[in-house]
């Protein structure tokens, strides 16, 4: 094919090549059959490559690692390399011994540290989602109702922080919230307080950090559903006697539900497993599961327990992830239908 091109030059060469091919085909049918078989072979080879490469990549670097985590979560901790016991062992007489140690999971359940961390992660993620929704919804609504040129500017402003470093945006809050930070300095300079308020490393700073980091993820899907909504629906509601606020409650809010769910999931899911924000902004006593996993792995070097924590965390996230996937699919179907 590439030789064809060189001979005929770019642009419009395809049809000429085809015409010439058709010309030769008229002469002999055998040629034709050979060509199509060759074509079919290349097509199948191309298809195989397209499917094969990403498929293999994901099997090797996504599924396999996950299975390894699953495996190690059933092993026991030992000091050595690797720092866990093997699941399979050859016993004398040709038997294979499979040792599934569920002790790691029992340990998670028994030690209040883990249970508290799980519950606390859910709580923090939930309230962060609610706060992000409360701030994000009016923003998304206002952007969707702005004039098209303003809309583009606002969207750009929502997306822009996402392209700057996440870590640095979290870091910015340390300077604002710490004891001799900007807020405390300002309040003390105004004479409103004598001693600095403890703002950093509290629940408050944790929420601020999470909401701040994930706000764009809330605003964007909300904006997408609100912008798509037919304005005449609101006019119809008002025409039928509905006051604007009630029209919002009965029409806009239910219809923006897919955006609310998508945005909430985009905040909730990563917030549950968040490590950086609780580590930098959270207090010493704020236990979150991502942080527990991190310290279990890096500080205690207990791979089996860390793996068990990971598996348990995934189980915890399965429900919201399934909801999210379901809504994503519905969105996609709706987009196709319209």
């Amino acid at each position: 094919m590439s030789e064809d091109n060189r001979a005929l030059g770019p642009g419009g060469s395809a049809s000429r090549a085809e015409a010439e091919q058709a010309w030769t085909q008229a002469g002999g049918g055998g040629d034709h059959r050979r060509l199509t078989r060759l074509q079919r072979l290349t097509a199948r080879f191309g298809r195989g490559t397209v499917i094969g490469v990403p498929y293999l990549w994901l099997l090797l670097f996504f599924l396999l690692p996950f299975l390894i985590v699953l495996k190690i979560s059933f092993a026991e901790f030992r000091i050595g390399v690797p720092p866990y016991t093997p699941l399979l062992a050859w016993l004398e007489g040709g038997y294979i011994q499979v040792k599934l140690a569920i002790g790691n999971y029992l340990f998670l359940l028994q030690d209040p540290l883990y249970v508290t961390a799980y519950l606390n992660s859910l709580k923090v993620a939930f309230f962060s989602t609610v706060f992000a929704l409360l701030i994000g919804y009016p923003m998304a609504y206002a952007i969707a109702r702005a004039s098209p040129s303003w809309r583009a500017v606002f969207l750009l402003l929502v997306i822009l922080p996402f392209w700057t470093s996440f870590l640095i945006r979290v870091y910015a809050w340390i300077g604002i919230l710490k004891n001799n930070g900007l807020i405390n300095n300002a309040l003390m300079a105004l004479g409103l307080i004598d001693d600095p308020l403890p703002l950093l490393n509290t629940e408050f700073s944790l929420y601020v950090g999470i909401v701040y980091s994930y706000l764009p993820f809330m605003v964007l899907p909300l904006y997408a559903t609100l912008e798509r909504m037919d304005v005449s629906l609101l006019e119809a509601a008002e025409d039928l006697g509905c006051r604007p606020f009630k029209a919002f409650l009965t029409v806009t809010l239910p219809l923006s539900m897919p955006g609310i769910v998508a945005g909430s999931m985009l905040v909730f899911i990563p917030a549950v497993g968040e490590f950086v924000i609780p580590d930098l902004l959270g207090g010493a006593d704020t236990l979150m599961i991502g942080k527990v996993l991190w310290s279990e792995f890096f500080n205690n070097r207990d791979w089996p327990v860390a793996s068990a924590v990971a598996i348990a965390m995934l189980v915890l996230l399965v429900i919201p992830i399934v909801i999210f996937q379901h809504y994503q699919q519905r969105q996609a179907e709706r987009a196709e239908a319209s």
């Binding site: 037919d230 005449s232 629906l233 006019e235 119809a236 509601a237 008002e238 025409d239 039928l240 006697g241 509905c242 006051r243 029409v251 239910p254 219809l255």
Partner: peptide
């Protein structure tokens, strides 16, 4: 007078039926 206080109703070109 606001639309919701008028004794008239409108049938929209897009029908504007509430999909939910």
């Amino acid at each position: 007078v606001a639309p919701y206080d008028r004794p008239v109703n409108m049938m929209f070109q897009s029908y504007a039926l509430f999909p939910h």
